[in-house]
Amino acid sequence: MRPGDPRTARAEVALASARGVGTEIFSSQPRADVIRAAAFSVALYAALALAVLGLAVLVLDNLIEGAPRLNPALLTNGTSSLPANAGLRSALIGTLWIIGFVIVLIVPLGVGAAVFLEEYAGSRSRVARLIELNVQNLAAVPSIIYGLLGLAFIARAPLNLGFVVLTASLTLALLVLPVVILVAREALRAVPGSVREGSLALGATKWQTIRHQVLPAAVPGIATGVILAISRAIGETAPLVPLGAATFVTFDPNGPFSRYTALPLQIFDWVKQPQAEFQTLAAAAIIVMLGLLLAMNSVAIWLRNRYERSW
């Protein structure tokens, strides 16, 4: 008898009851099943532990190294060539400006594109399929390519914005837009057809149905996508390099047309420095950046729960 054969299972049950395992009525679980189930859960826990462990080691390592510099001055000091005076203020402000504009760009564009593709285009439309193919491929393009694209089309002619905050925002928005569109489409698709039917059957128009039923129901999913996209944009370094993010700015970026630096570039710059003090500074800055990302994800989760509860 092969394993998996129902006769095998029955024989095992019979054996187990013959051995007096289990109660009188309920025979005990076949042994092979018990072992398989246990092995599977052990494997799952191992996978989880590995992932968490990796992250924990990374955080702890930086925490220990950066501890001496983890103080408010790190956030309030501007850029300086002296490690003792250097801080993240300019880079943080730069990142906030960039991300602010990224959000303004990706939310309407991403949600709009997703609504068009999901609700209006129809699965058989050629245009829609072409766009869809492009969106999926764009999501897999290396980020440096976007940097070069931004350099060629946004920093220089035709847009000619120069090396400013808005150039970085536009480029990063392009970079994360495919992710937002894909996630928003998923979220829209997850809204049950019965909700749409129910709304239309009441005499609501298609747009009213989308605006008042489908989109609100998809908000938690869309918000998650947007926040994931923003987290990625915050951490991206490569595309900003060709876009002329200065690593040494002695002023705070103050608007869309200001020159700038950003968190990951500042960290990159510090890591490159020979002095050990700068290494400490970089470690502390990494912790700040991780903290920022963590805070953002918490906001995402909070938002999500709030929306779910208000139903």
Binding site: V195, A201, L202, G203, W311
Partner: peptide
């Protein structure tokens, strides 16, 4: 559909109050 309403097989309340 404003004049002729419909109730479906599976109750389909909106995810709202």
């Amino acid at each position: 559909r404003k004049l002729i309403g419909m109730v479906f097989q599976k109750p389909n309340p909106f995810p709202k109050s």
